[in-house]
Design a protein around this nucleic acid. Structure first.
Length: 375
RNA sequence: GCCCCCAUCGUCUAGUGGACCAGGACACGGCCCUUUCAAGGCCUAAACUGGGGUUCGAAUCCCCAUGGGGGCACCA
C-alpha cells in the first residue's frame, strides 16, 4: 500500500485504493479471514455512472462515481468508522433530518450510497457553513487548541459572556431569523427556525458583535438576576461582595457593562480601600492645585452640612457651587470624583457617594485636601 | 494536484426577474443628551467580484473566469 501511495503521488493522482482485493470472491476472502489474515472492510463504490444527492440548502449535487474512493468502513480491529457507524446509528434512531457541518460534504455521496445499499429511506440532509476565524483565514476549529484563534464556549462564559448572548450571537452567524429583533432567546429561535434561512457560505466570527450582544443582554436582565451572576466574578477577583450592597450598585453599572467581568473594574471601589490620589490627579487641567483645593473645601463644607445624603440633596447645591466658583460642573465634579472614588472615571458621582456613605466620603475628602495642601 | 461547495457594504446578513439609485445589525465617523465613562437618540459613509449570455427588464436565471472555503486517514 505504501508503494502504491508513492506511485500515485508521483503521478499526481489522488491517493486512493488501487482495488487489489476488490474483486476477491466470497470464498477466497472467507478463506483468508479463516486463515487469520488481518483485513478491513471497504465500501465497493460503483465504477461507472454518477451519484446524485440532495442537500436542502444547495439542491442536487452530482458527482462521478469514479471520484468516490472505496472507503474503509470497518477497521482491522473490527470497529466501524464514522461513515458506517453514523449511518446505522441514524437509521436505528429514526433520524429524519441530518444537519451537520459542511466539512462532511465531501463524504456525503459515500454516506448516501451506504444508506441506499442498505435499502433504507434517506433522511433529509443539510450541511451548515463553517465558522471562519476572525481573520477569515481558515475555519474555526475546536481541535486546534494550540491556536490563539481557537476558543471554547466555556471560556467565553468565564470571560463574562452570558449564555443568552453566546447563543443568539452564534445563531446569527450563517443564518437569519427574519429581521425585527436580533436578540433571540432559545424559544424565539426555535419558533422562527427555518432551514431555508440558513446560509451556505462560510461566516467569519465577529467578536465585536458578541460584545454588543452581551451588553444588550446584560441590560435586559433585572437587577436581582444580574447581581447574582456578578457575584462569582467578584469572588474570582478576591472580593466578597455583599449581595444587598451589590443590589444597590448594579443599577449604576448595568448600562456600562460589556462583560460581567467588567463589573469588578466599575464597582471594585465600593468594596475595597481606595488608594489616595496624587495632587496631579486631583487637579483638573487648566486649574492650579490651590484652585482645586479651594473648590474641594467649598464642596466639602456643603457635603458636610447637607441635611440628607442622597443625590436629590447633594446635587443641586453642588451644581450651584460650581457656578459660584466659575467652574464647569464637570470640573468640580471631577475633583470630587477623584477624591472620593480614587478614579478619574466612575459610576455617576452622587449615586456613588450615596452608597459609599457620608462618613467615608468625608474622610476621603479630607485626605484629598491634605494632599492638595502639600502640593 | 484532484473532487466538492460558496460569492451583496470592512463583518454578519435581507433580497428568490420589475416594489432596489439595494434594507437591517456590528464596527467606523459626526451630532444630540450629559458630572466622567457608558447607555440612549439622530445622521453620514460604505456592497451586488469580473466578463459573457437569457430577457422588454437582472443582485436575483445560465456559462466562463477570478476569489474564498471545505475535503482527499484503519479521525470525527
Amino acid at each position: 500500500m505504501k508503494t502504491v501511495r508513492e506511485q500515485q503521488q508521483k503521478a499526481k493522482a489522488p491517493p486512493r485504493y488501487d482495488g487489489t482485493c476488490r474483486e476477491l470472491s466470497r470464498e477466497e476472502s472467507d478463506r483468508r479471514v479463516a486463515a487469520g489474515e488481518p483485513f478491513v472492510i471497504r465500501f465497493k463504490t460503483p465504477k461507472d455512472g454518477s451519484t446524485t444527492i440532495r442537500d436542502e440548502l444547495r439542491g442536487d449535487i452530482t458527482v462521478e462515481n469514479t471520484t468516490i474512493d472505496d472507503y474503509i468502513i470497518v477497521k482491522t480491529d473490527g470497529l466501524a468508522l464514522y461513515h458506517l457507524a453514523a449511518m446505522v446509528d441514524d437509521h436505528e434512531m429514526g433520524i429524519t433530518h441530518v444537519l451537520r457541518g459542511s466539512e462532511w460534504l465531501g463524504t456525503f455521496p459515500l454516506h448516501a450510497l451506504i444508506i441506499r445499499a442498505f435499502g433504507w429511506p434517506e433522511p433529509k440532509w443539510c450541511h451548515l457553513s463553517v465558522f471562519l476565524k476572525p481573520t477569515g483565514k481558515g475555519k474555526m476549529s475546536k481541535r486546534d487548541v494550540t491556536s490563539e484563534q481557537s476558543i471554547y464556549a466555556l471560556e467565553l462564559r468565564e470571560m463574562g459572556y452570558l449564555p443568552e448572548a453566546i447563543n443568539s450571537w452564534t445563531a446569527l452567524m450563517g443564518a437569519s431569523f427574519g429581521a425585527e429583533e436580533e436578540l433571540l432567546d432559545l424559544a424565539g429561535m426555535t419558533e422562527r427556525f427555518k432551514i431555508a434561512n440558513l446560509n451556505p457560505s462560510p461566516a467569519r466570527v465577529n467578536f465585536e458583535k458578541l460584545d454588543d450582544f452581551n451588553g444588550k443582554w446584560i441590560r435586559r436582565l433585572d437587577i436581582t438576576d444580574l447581581s447574582g451572576r456578578l457575584l462569582p466574578f467578584f469572588a474570582k477577583a478576591g472580593i466578597q461582595a455583599d449581595p444587598a450592597l451589590l443590589q444597590r450598585i448594579v443599577p449604576l453599572i448595568q448600562p456600562r457593562l460589556v462583560t460581567l467581568d467588567d463589573a469588578v473594574d466599575f464597582a471594585g471601589l465600593f468594596f475595597r480601600e481606595v488608594p489616595a490620589s496624587p495632587a496631579e490627579a486631583l487637579t483638573p487641567k487648566g486649574l492650579t492645585a490651590a484652585q482645586a483645593l479651594g473648590a474641594l473645601e467649598a464642596a466639602h463644607a456643603l457635603i458636610r452640612a447637607s441635611e440628607g445624603f442622597t443625590t436629590e440633596a447633594l446635587e443641586p447645591p453642588l451644581r450651584a457651587l460650581a457656578e459660584t466658583l466659575g467652574l464647569k460642573p464637570g470640573q468640580l465634579f471631577g475633583i470630587i470624583r477623584q477624591a472620593v472614588t480614587g478614579q478619574p472615571v466612575s459610576p455617576p458621582l452622587f449615586e456613588s457617594m450615596e452608597i459609599i456613605g457620608r462618613e467615608v466620603v468625608v474622610e476621603r475628602l479630607e485626605r484629598a485636601e491634605a494632599t492638595l495642601r502639600g502640593a
